[in-house]
Amino acid sequence: MPQVSLTVNGRPVKVEVEGRTLLVQVLREKLGLTGTHVGCDTSQCGACVVHVDGKSAKACTLLAAQLEGASVTTIEGVAGADGKMHPMQEAFRDNHGLQCGFCTPGMVMSAIDLAKTNPDASEHEIREWLEGNICRCTGYHNIVKSIQAGSAAMRAAK
């Protein structure tokens, strides 16, 4: 079986993959990083969003074989080295931006990318950005609030 070398949450890893193996399968099944979730099979729900080379991407839509040399960050890898949660994670907690928690890792990863790309996004821009992340619990109201607060915290930390 072909091998792929990549960096996951700062650690170099080498994994055997089939041609059809998806990044999300590598993360969940080979590396035990079960924080990245699978909520659909049509690249719609965004529960599997991770960062690949710093940009948000749906891990269910990337073949592992494409990722030779790539750097992948998952929800398990965004906290600080001291274990302190990322400001976006804190903001979701402060603003009740999650309920069942299943879409949450993808939401947080997507939100961090938005805050980097557009640090002071309007409510409208946030809602448009979240087009690719489905949440069934919150009605998005508190997710929008969380992202506004998390973005502000990230700006302040710069």
Binding site: I75, M85, R93, F102
Partner: peptide, 16 residues
């Protein structure tokens, strides 16, 4: 009060 369960969900440590 903030939710007790949130930290595990936010850090990818929920167990589904």
């Amino acid at each position: 009060v903030r939710r007790k369960e949130d930290v595990r969900f936010l850090t990818g440590r929920g167990t589904y």
